[in-house]
Design a binder for these strands. Sequence first.
DNA 1: TCTGGGGTCCTAGGACCC
DNA 2: TCTGGGGTCCTAGGACCC
Length: 387
Amino acid sequence: MEKTYLHVDLDAFFASVEQLDHIEYRGKPVIIGGLPGDRRAVVSTASYEARKYGVHSAMPLSLAVQLCPDAIFIRGNYKRYHEKSEQVMAVFANYSPCVIQISVDEAFLDITGTERLFGPAEELAKKLKEEVKSKTGLTVSVGIAGTMYVAKIASGFKKPDGLTYVQAGQEENFMLSLPLEKLWGAGTKTLQHLRSAGFTSIKDIHAKSEKLLQSIFGKATGSFLYDSVRGGQSISFGEEAKSRSISSERTFEFDLTDRLAIDMALMELSTLVMYRMHKEEVRSCTVALKIRYEDFTTVTIQETSDFPVSSTDDMFERCKNLFNKKWDSSRGIRLLGAGCYNLQNKNIPIQGNLFENNNSKKAKVEEAIYKLEEKHPELKIRKALLF
DNA sequence: TCTGGGGTCCTAGGACCC
DNA sequence: TCTGGGGTCCTAGGACCC
Protein backbone atom coordinates (compact mmCIF):
# COMPACT_ATOMS: atom_id res chain seq x y z
CA MET A 1 0.00 0.00 0.00
CA GLU A 2 1.13 3.53 -0.80
CA LYS A 3 2.25 5.27 2.34
CA THR A 4 2.02 8.96 3.13
CA TYR A 5 4.21 10.69 5.66
CA LEU A 6 4.37 14.15 7.10
CA HIS A 7 7.49 15.61 8.56
CA VAL A 8 6.74 18.56 10.80
CA ASP A 9 9.43 20.92 11.98
CA LEU A 10 9.00 23.82 14.38
CA ASP A 11 10.45 27.04 12.98
CA ALA A 12 13.42 28.45 14.93
CA PHE A 13 11.85 26.72 17.88
CA PHE A 14 13.64 28.03 20.99
CA ALA A 15 13.79 31.57 19.63
CA SER A 16 10.11 31.45 18.66
CA VAL A 17 9.13 30.39 22.17
CA GLU A 18 10.99 33.37 23.59
CA GLN A 19 9.28 35.71 21.14
CA LEU A 20 5.96 34.18 22.07
CA ASP A 21 6.57 34.68 25.80
CA HIS A 22 8.09 38.15 25.44
CA ILE A 23 6.14 40.52 23.22
CA GLU A 24 9.07 42.91 23.24
CA TYR A 25 11.29 40.33 21.48
CA ARG A 26 8.98 39.98 18.49
CA GLY A 27 10.37 41.18 15.19
CA LYS A 28 13.83 41.38 16.72
CA PRO A 29 16.92 39.22 16.38
CA VAL A 30 16.94 36.65 19.20
CA ILE A 31 19.86 34.33 19.79
CA ILE A 32 19.68 31.34 22.13
CA GLY A 33 22.85 29.71 23.45
CA GLY A 34 24.58 32.16 25.72
CA LEU A 35 25.16 35.75 26.77
CA PRO A 36 27.79 37.99 25.20
CA GLY A 37 31.00 37.32 27.06
CA ASP A 38 30.21 33.66 27.71
CA ARG A 39 33.36 31.90 26.68
CA ARG A 40 33.06 28.79 24.52
CA ALA A 41 29.33 29.05 23.98
CA VAL A 42 27.70 28.29 20.64
CA VAL A 43 24.44 29.39 19.04
CA SER A 44 21.67 26.94 19.68
CA THR A 45 18.93 28.74 17.76
CA ALA A 46 18.76 32.06 15.93
CA SER A 47 15.46 33.74 15.12
CA TYR A 48 14.87 34.53 11.45
CA GLU A 49 15.61 38.19 12.18
CA ALA A 50 19.05 37.15 13.46
CA ARG A 51 19.68 34.84 10.52
CA LYS A 52 19.63 37.86 8.24
CA TYR A 53 22.91 38.86 9.85
CA GLY A 54 24.44 35.51 9.02
CA VAL A 55 23.92 34.01 12.46
CA HIS A 56 23.09 30.31 12.49
CA SER A 57 23.04 27.27 14.77
CA ALA A 58 26.36 25.82 15.97
CA MET A 59 28.20 29.06 15.31
CA PRO A 60 30.51 30.23 18.10
CA LEU A 61 28.58 32.75 20.14
CA SER A 62 31.45 35.23 20.01
CA LEU A 63 31.06 35.40 16.25
CA ALA A 64 27.32 35.84 16.55
CA VAL A 65 27.94 38.77 18.91
CA GLN A 66 30.16 40.37 16.28
CA LEU A 67 27.69 39.79 13.45
CA CYS A 68 24.67 40.96 15.39
CA PRO A 69 25.68 42.88 18.51
CA ASP A 70 22.21 44.28 19.11
CA ALA A 71 20.50 40.93 19.22
CA ILE A 72 18.69 39.72 22.32
CA PHE A 73 20.91 37.00 23.81
CA ILE A 74 19.44 34.27 26.00
CA ARG A 75 21.13 31.27 27.58
CA GLY A 76 17.96 29.20 27.23
CA ASN A 77 14.91 28.16 29.23
CA TYR A 78 14.89 24.51 28.37
CA LYS A 79 12.15 23.46 30.72
CA ARG A 80 9.84 25.90 29.00
CA TYR A 81 10.84 24.65 25.55
CA HIS A 82 10.02 21.09 26.53
CA GLU A 83 6.67 22.22 27.85
CA LYS A 84 5.83 23.85 24.52
CA SER A 85 7.15 20.83 22.68
CA GLU A 86 4.71 18.61 24.52
CA GLN A 87 1.83 20.90 23.59
CA VAL A 88 2.78 20.69 19.93
CA MET A 89 3.22 16.91 19.99
CA ALA A 90 -0.22 16.63 21.55
CA VAL A 91 -1.66 18.43 18.53
CA PHE A 92 0.15 16.03 16.18
CA ALA A 93 -1.52 13.13 17.98
CA ASN A 94 -4.89 14.45 16.81
CA TYR A 95 -3.95 13.71 13.21
CA SER A 96 -2.32 10.30 13.40
CA PRO A 97 -2.03 7.42 15.80
CA CYS A 98 1.50 6.97 14.57
CA VAL A 99 3.67 9.93 15.55
CA ILE A 100 7.43 9.40 15.67
CA GLN A 101 9.09 12.21 17.54
CA ILE A 102 12.74 12.45 16.52
CA SER A 103 13.78 15.49 18.54
CA VAL A 104 12.32 18.22 20.71
CA ASP A 105 11.12 20.14 17.66
CA GLU A 106 10.28 17.66 14.94
CA ALA A 107 8.26 14.56 14.26
CA PHE A 108 7.05 12.23 11.55
CA LEU A 109 3.36 11.43 11.17
CA ASP A 110 2.24 8.39 9.26
CA ILE A 111 -1.00 9.69 7.77
CA THR A 112 -1.64 6.75 5.45
CA GLY A 113 -5.37 6.16 5.16
CA THR A 114 -6.57 9.29 6.95
CA GLU A 115 -8.28 10.78 3.87
CA ARG A 116 -11.80 9.99 5.05
CA LEU A 117 -11.18 11.87 8.26
CA PHE A 118 -9.12 14.83 7.12
CA GLY A 119 -9.26 14.91 3.33
CA PRO A 120 -6.20 14.91 1.09
CA ALA A 121 -2.78 15.10 2.71
CA GLU A 122 -2.35 18.76 1.85
CA GLU A 123 -5.63 19.64 3.55
CA LEU A 124 -4.62 17.71 6.63
CA ALA A 125 -1.31 19.55 6.71
CA LYS A 126 -3.05 22.91 6.50
CA LYS A 127 -5.41 22.00 9.31
CA LEU A 128 -2.51 20.79 11.42
CA LYS A 129 -0.56 23.99 10.84
CA GLU A 130 -3.56 26.07 11.84
CA GLU A 131 -4.24 24.05 14.95
CA VAL A 132 -0.61 24.25 16.08
CA LYS A 133 -0.70 27.99 15.53
CA SER A 134 -3.97 28.56 17.36
CA LYS A 135 -3.23 26.24 20.27
CA THR A 136 0.45 26.99 20.84
CA GLY A 137 1.18 30.23 18.99
CA LEU A 138 3.98 28.57 17.03
CA THR A 139 4.49 27.99 13.32
CA VAL A 140 5.72 24.80 11.71
CA SER A 141 7.05 23.80 8.33
CA VAL A 142 5.69 20.62 6.82
CA GLY A 143 6.89 18.17 4.22
CA ILE A 144 4.60 15.54 2.69
CA ALA A 145 5.91 12.55 0.78
CA GLY A 146 5.66 8.82 0.29
CA THR A 147 8.81 8.19 2.33
CA MET A 148 9.94 9.60 5.65
CA TYR A 149 13.27 10.56 4.19
CA VAL A 150 11.81 12.74 1.44
CA ALA A 151 9.21 14.19 3.81
CA LYS A 152 12.07 15.29 6.06
CA ILE A 153 13.90 16.99 3.24
CA ALA A 154 10.67 18.51 1.93
CA SER A 155 9.89 20.16 5.27
CA GLY A 156 13.13 22.08 4.96
CA PHE A 157 12.40 23.13 1.39
CA LYS A 158 10.34 26.14 2.34
CA LYS A 159 10.71 27.80 5.74
CA PRO A 160 9.35 29.25 7.89
CA ASP A 161 5.66 28.38 7.92
CA GLY A 162 6.16 26.31 4.77
CA LEU A 163 4.30 23.43 3.19
CA THR A 164 5.94 21.27 0.56
CA TYR A 165 4.12 18.41 -1.06
CA VAL A 166 6.05 15.87 -3.07
CA GLN A 167 3.48 13.97 -5.14
CA ALA A 168 3.37 10.21 -4.82
CA GLY A 169 5.85 8.73 -7.26
CA GLN A 170 7.82 11.95 -7.55
CA GLU A 171 10.19 11.24 -4.63
CA GLU A 172 13.10 10.25 -6.82
CA ASN A 173 12.69 13.20 -9.17
CA PHE A 174 12.49 15.52 -6.19
CA MET A 175 15.76 14.18 -4.86
CA LEU A 176 17.44 14.49 -8.27
CA SER A 177 16.49 18.17 -8.44
CA LEU A 178 18.38 18.98 -5.23
CA PRO A 179 21.97 20.08 -4.75
CA LEU A 180 24.38 17.74 -2.99
CA GLU A 181 24.32 19.68 0.29
CA LYS A 182 20.66 18.89 0.81
CA LEU A 183 21.36 15.22 1.42
CA TRP A 184 20.25 14.68 4.98
CA GLY A 185 22.72 12.36 6.70
CA ALA A 186 25.73 13.40 4.68
CA GLY A 187 27.68 15.87 6.76
CA THR A 188 30.89 17.82 6.22
CA LYS A 189 33.12 14.75 5.96
CA THR A 190 30.96 12.80 3.55
CA LEU A 191 30.39 15.87 1.38
CA GLN A 192 34.13 16.42 1.26
CA HIS A 193 34.66 12.79 0.39
CA LEU A 194 31.98 12.98 -2.31
CA ARG A 195 33.53 16.05 -3.90
CA SER A 196 37.04 14.67 -3.80
CA ALA A 197 35.73 11.53 -5.52
CA GLY A 198 34.31 13.72 -8.29
CA PHE A 199 30.64 13.82 -7.30
CA THR A 200 29.15 17.27 -7.81
CA SER A 201 25.42 16.52 -7.78
CA ILE A 202 22.85 14.06 -6.55
CA LYS A 203 22.53 12.91 -10.15
CA ASP A 204 26.18 11.83 -10.05
CA ILE A 205 25.42 9.58 -7.11
CA HIS A 206 22.30 8.25 -8.78
CA ALA A 207 24.33 7.16 -11.79
CA LYS A 208 26.48 4.76 -9.75
CA SER A 209 25.79 1.24 -8.55
CA GLU A 210 25.40 0.42 -4.87
CA LYS A 211 28.47 -1.80 -5.04
CA LEU A 212 30.60 1.01 -6.40
CA LEU A 213 29.33 3.49 -3.81
CA GLN A 214 30.08 0.98 -1.07
CA SER A 215 33.58 0.46 -2.37
CA ILE A 216 34.26 4.20 -2.17
CA PHE A 217 32.36 5.19 0.97
CA GLY A 218 32.08 1.97 2.94
CA LYS A 219 29.23 -0.43 3.37
CA ALA A 220 26.79 1.63 5.38
CA THR A 221 27.43 5.04 3.85
CA GLY A 222 27.46 3.55 0.36
CA SER A 223 24.06 1.94 0.86
CA PHE A 224 22.74 5.08 2.49
CA LEU A 225 23.79 7.21 -0.48
CA TYR A 226 22.34 4.73 -2.95
CA ASP A 227 19.00 4.65 -1.12
CA SER A 228 18.72 8.32 -0.29
CA VAL A 229 19.02 9.63 -3.85
CA ARG A 230 16.22 7.22 -4.82
CA GLY A 231 13.89 8.61 -2.18
CA GLY A 232 15.09 6.74 0.88
CA GLN A 233 12.43 4.03 0.73
CA SER A 234 14.35 1.77 3.09
CA ILE A 235 15.54 4.48 5.46
CA SER A 236 13.26 4.44 8.46
CA PHE A 237 13.04 5.97 11.91
CA GLY A 238 11.82 4.92 15.29
CA GLU A 239 11.88 1.23 14.47
CA GLU A 240 12.89 -0.84 17.46
CA ALA A 241 14.04 0.22 20.90
CA LYS A 242 17.80 0.54 20.76
CA SER A 243 20.45 0.23 23.38
CA ARG A 244 20.35 3.49 25.20
CA SER A 245 22.80 5.65 27.05
CA ILE A 246 22.81 8.50 29.52
CA SER A 247 25.70 10.91 29.61
CA SER A 248 26.67 14.31 30.81
CA GLU A 249 29.54 16.49 29.75
CA ARG A 250 30.86 19.92 30.46
CA THR A 251 33.11 22.35 28.67
CA PHE A 252 34.97 24.54 31.13
CA GLU A 253 35.37 28.26 30.67
CA PHE A 254 39.06 27.77 31.39
CA ASP A 255 41.09 24.63 30.91
CA LEU A 256 41.49 22.36 33.92
CA THR A 257 44.92 21.25 35.06
CA ASP A 258 44.44 20.96 38.80
CA ARG A 259 43.61 17.50 40.09
CA LEU A 260 41.18 18.67 42.75
CA ALA A 261 39.23 20.71 40.23
CA ILE A 262 39.17 17.68 37.95
CA ASP A 263 37.86 15.43 40.70
CA MET A 264 35.18 17.95 41.57
CA ALA A 265 34.10 17.99 37.94
CA LEU A 266 34.04 14.19 37.80
CA MET A 267 31.95 14.13 40.97
CA GLU A 268 29.49 16.59 39.52
CA LEU A 269 29.16 14.62 36.29
CA SER A 270 28.73 11.38 38.24
CA THR A 271 26.00 13.00 40.30
CA LEU A 272 24.14 14.23 37.25
CA VAL A 273 24.33 10.90 35.44
CA MET A 274 23.26 8.87 38.47
CA TYR A 275 20.37 11.21 39.17
CA ARG A 276 19.06 10.68 35.66
CA MET A 277 19.60 6.93 35.92
CA HIS A 278 17.53 6.97 39.06
CA LYS A 279 14.77 9.05 37.48
CA GLU A 280 14.58 6.85 34.41
CA GLU A 281 14.80 3.68 36.47
CA VAL A 282 17.70 2.15 34.61
CA ARG A 283 21.06 0.70 35.52
CA SER A 284 24.27 -0.02 33.67
CA CYS A 285 27.49 -1.99 33.92
CA THR A 286 29.35 0.14 31.37
CA VAL A 287 30.88 3.46 32.34
CA ALA A 288 32.53 5.74 29.81
CA LEU A 289 34.72 8.78 30.26
CA LYS A 290 35.56 11.45 27.75
CA ILE A 291 38.45 13.92 27.89
CA ARG A 292 38.84 16.79 25.46
CA TYR A 293 42.18 18.56 25.74
CA GLU A 294 42.96 22.20 25.06
CA ASP A 295 44.01 21.34 21.49
CA PHE A 296 40.56 19.82 20.96
CA THR A 297 41.83 16.27 20.62
CA THR A 298 39.33 13.98 22.28
CA VAL A 299 39.90 10.61 23.86
CA THR A 300 37.41 8.20 25.38
CA ILE A 301 37.74 5.17 27.57
CA GLN A 302 35.06 2.80 28.76
CA GLU A 303 34.87 -0.27 30.90
CA THR A 304 32.21 -2.88 31.40
CA SER A 305 32.12 -4.62 34.74
CA ASP A 306 30.13 -7.60 35.98
CA PHE A 307 28.18 -5.39 38.35
CA PRO A 308 25.97 -2.41 37.68
CA VAL A 309 27.00 0.98 38.98
CA SER A 310 25.46 1.02 42.42
CA SER A 311 25.78 4.60 43.64
CA THR A 312 27.17 8.03 42.83
CA ASP A 313 30.30 7.16 44.80
CA ASP A 314 30.69 3.99 42.78
CA MET A 315 30.25 5.95 39.56
CA PHE A 316 32.76 8.53 40.74
CA GLU A 317 35.34 5.85 41.60
CA ARG A 318 34.92 4.19 38.22
CA CYS A 319 35.28 7.53 36.45
CA LYS A 320 38.43 8.40 38.38
CA ASN A 321 39.84 5.00 37.58
CA LEU A 322 39.20 5.48 33.85
CA PHE A 323 40.52 9.01 34.02
CA ASN A 324 43.79 7.89 35.60
CA LYS A 325 44.36 5.43 32.78
CA LYS A 326 44.01 8.11 30.10
CA TRP A 327 45.07 11.42 31.57
CA ASP A 328 47.89 13.28 29.89
CA SER A 329 48.66 15.84 32.59
CA SER A 330 50.81 17.93 30.28
CA ARG A 331 47.75 19.27 28.52
CA GLY A 332 44.88 21.34 29.87
CA ILE A 333 41.41 19.83 29.79
CA ARG A 334 38.62 21.80 28.14
CA LEU A 335 35.90 19.18 28.50
CA LEU A 336 35.08 16.22 30.69
CA GLY A 337 32.21 13.83 30.07
CA ALA A 338 30.87 10.80 31.87
CA GLY A 339 28.20 8.36 30.84
CA CYS A 340 26.59 4.97 31.23
CA TYR A 341 25.95 2.68 28.26
CA ASN A 342 23.95 -0.46 27.56
CA LEU A 343 21.22 0.72 29.88
CA GLN A 344 19.05 -1.92 31.44
CA ASN A 345 15.67 -1.52 33.00
CA LYS A 346 15.94 -1.51 36.78
CA ASN A 347 13.05 -3.90 37.25
CA ILE A 348 14.83 -6.70 35.42
CA PRO A 349 16.36 -8.75 38.22
CA ILE A 350 20.11 -9.08 38.41
CA GLN A 351 21.37 -12.62 38.09
CA GLY A 352 22.45 -14.14 41.38
CA ASN A 353 22.86 -12.39 44.66
CA LEU A 354 26.08 -10.67 43.78
CA PHE A 355 24.51 -7.26 44.11
CA GLU A 356 23.93 -7.75 47.81
CA ASN A 357 27.30 -6.54 48.98
CA ASN A 358 28.28 -3.47 50.91
CA ASN A 359 27.50 -1.29 47.92
CA SER A 360 23.81 -1.81 48.43
CA LYS A 361 23.96 0.19 51.64
CA LYS A 362 25.17 3.25 49.82
CA ALA A 363 22.59 2.61 47.13
CA LYS A 364 19.83 2.57 49.71
CA VAL A 365 21.04 5.76 51.33
CA GLU A 366 21.05 7.37 47.93
CA GLU A 367 17.51 6.24 47.17
CA ALA A 368 16.43 7.78 50.45
CA ILE A 369 18.11 11.06 49.58
CA TYR A 370 16.41 11.18 46.20
CA LYS A 371 13.06 10.59 47.86
CA LEU A 372 13.74 13.29 50.41
CA GLU A 373 14.68 15.75 47.71
CA GLU A 374 11.53 14.97 45.78
CA LYS A 375 9.45 15.63 48.86
CA HIS A 376 11.33 18.76 49.87
CA PRO A 377 12.74 20.41 46.77
CA GLU A 378 14.15 23.22 48.93
CA LEU A 379 16.66 20.72 50.32
CA LYS A 380 19.55 20.10 48.05
CA ILE A 381 21.80 17.50 49.47
CA ARG A 382 25.12 17.57 47.74
CA LYS A 383 28.30 15.63 47.99
CA ALA A 384 30.83 17.08 50.41
CA LEU A 385 33.47 17.20 47.70
CA LEU A 386 31.44 19.75 45.77
CA PHE A 387 31.70 22.34 48.49
C1' DT B 1 35.19 32.81 14.50
C1' DC B 2 37.33 28.91 17.43
C1' DT B 3 34.53 25.32 18.08
C1' DG B 4 27.82 23.06 23.37
C1' DG B 5 25.43 19.08 24.96
C1' DG B 6 22.79 14.98 24.38
C1' DG B 7 22.26 11.40 21.72
C1' DT B 8 22.65 7.27 17.83
C1' DC B 9 25.00 4.49 14.57
C1' DC B 10 29.10 2.55 12.15
C1' DT B 11 33.81 0.61 11.72
C1' DA B 12 37.77 -1.95 12.75
C1' DG B 13 40.45 -4.56 15.66
C1' DG B 14 41.04 -7.66 19.51
C1' DA B 15 39.62 -11.24 22.88
C1' DC B 16 37.47 -15.32 23.53
C1' DC B 17 34.85 -19.48 22.56
C1' DC B 18 33.48 -23.60 20.02
C1' DT C 1 54.80 -26.64 13.20
C1' DC C 2 51.58 -23.57 11.77
C1' DT C 3 47.34 -21.82 11.93
C1' DG C 4 40.26 -22.42 10.09
C1' DG C 5 35.97 -20.28 10.41
C1' DG C 6 32.14 -18.30 12.65
C1' DG C 7 30.04 -15.87 16.31
C1' DT C 8 29.76 -12.63 20.06
C1' DC C 9 31.21 -9.11 22.95
C1' DC C 10 33.99 -5.21 24.00
C1' DT C 11 36.57 -0.97 22.93
C1' DA C 12 38.13 3.53 20.69
C1' DG C 13 37.25 6.64 17.49
C1' DG C 14 34.52 9.01 14.14
C1' DA C 15 30.38 10.83 11.63
C1' DC C 16 26.14 12.76 12.07
C1' DC C 17 21.81 14.89 13.89
C1' DC C 18 19.15 18.65 16.43
